[in-house]
Nucleic acid binder design. Structure first.
Lengths: 207, 207
DNA sequence: ATTCAAACGAGACTGAGTGTCATTATGGCC
DNA sequence: GGCCATAATGACACTCAGTCTCGTTTGAAT
């Protein structure tokens, strides 16, 4: 995880400054607050120029949620190379759980810090929502291709959203308990959440 | 719709500038593009100050999606004063359909223009997503209170999201067909979408 | 008419994000 | 090892959204 020896030198350097930015940002934002920390302070601390920052990240918000982005990027990769059989919802659940399990060590702490940070900055919350919607779009496109369905098929959108929602709610609980039990506990929560999904449709107001 | 005679004069004036801003913004953004139109140009055209703009709207994006905001605001109001019985999903569907049906005349055209605009500006898309997530939060809170459930109950989140997703997909189709059939057609599409929801869970990859 | 509060206008100010251009570092090739 | 094309970088000016302050206006109530 520290370094990928096979990559060209240039790429390794790029990734190194990228990680330096993400790590420093997470620390500074957590200490001083997201809005109170300016980009100038961040790039100063990492000793790169603002230009370099915007070549690595599209927005100030993006550098704060690297851990979140890594998860969804791994999830998408897992989905794309997966062979589907049986219930699609189950496949999505397994792809997400597998992706989370396979992330590098130390991801847990970074993700916990990220989620905590998101709770303190409305702009970050909006950005995470937006990011997840983008993921859902790609999931729908991927499923449509694999299953030979229309990308506008409502069922695909529902399935894609159910998955991110299950993650979101599971993660919220996990963070509330300070990430107790680490990543394994988070994934267990996720699988529990998926079991509860079908019950939603039959929920009835029977006082 | 033009004016509510019972309100205090001050409030009427506020609403008038608000509408003027929203209408002019929708026109200018549609003509010149969202990003190409600056706030200064907008407030200049309406002859108010930038201060006044930000007292009426929290962001440049917000003024562009007034029609969208009106819908969800009416939906929330309908939900809150509704008595629930039977399947919750059906109640949500009826509340949303009813709210859409009850909006003032001319809303159709404004909403159509809004959705078209959103397709051209990524920032607007992000803002709409964010706005809808806020609505879902309030729906969850409302349902939790009415049904005596935990606001973290996954089923509530699922139900809230299904509703906005059904609307979103229905609306996309409707816009693609240039709003043919007006609001009635949009609502018919919405109800069709709801019927297709349960099928999502059982979707299976059976090639 | 007077008074009070709330909305308004004007303008300075912060900071994110973009565009340009000169400089520097890298990788491929002789 | 030296050389060249090219891509990343840094420095800097610029635009514009959004905030803040403060003095002025306007509607409402007595």
């Amino acid at each position: 995880m520290t370094e990928d020896r096979s990559l060209p030198l240039r790429e390794r350097k790029r990734l190194r400054t990228r990680r330096a930015l993400a790590d420093t940002a997470l620390r500074m934002f957590s200490e001083k607050g997201f809005e109170a920390t300016t980009l100038d302070e961040l790039v100063d601390a990492v000793e790169v120029s603002k230009s370099t920052f915007f070549r690595a990240f599209p927005a100030k918000e993006a550098v704060a949620i690297e851990a979140e982005a890594e998860l969804w990027s791994a999830y998408l990769a897992a989905l794309r190379e997966r062979r589907f059989s049986g219930l699609v919802l189950g496949e999505l659940r397994d792809a997400l759980a597998g992706a989370a399990a396979a992330l590098g060590p130390g991801w847990d702490e970074r993700y916990l810090a990220t989620r905590r940070l998101v709770l303190t900055a409305p702009a970050l919350l909006a950005y995470v929502e937006h990011h997840r919607t983008g993921v859902e779009r790609e999931v729908v496109a991927c499923l449509a291709a694999k299953l030979g369905l229309d990308p506008d098929d409502l069922r695909l959108h529902v399935l894609a959203e159910l998955t991110t929602t299950a993650w979101s709610v599971s993660g919220r609980d996990w963070v509330r308990r300070d990430g107790e039990g680490g990543r394994a506990a988070l994934i267990r929560r996720l699988e529990g959440a998926f079991q509860a999904v079908p019950a939603a449709l039959h929920l009835s107001a029977g006082d």
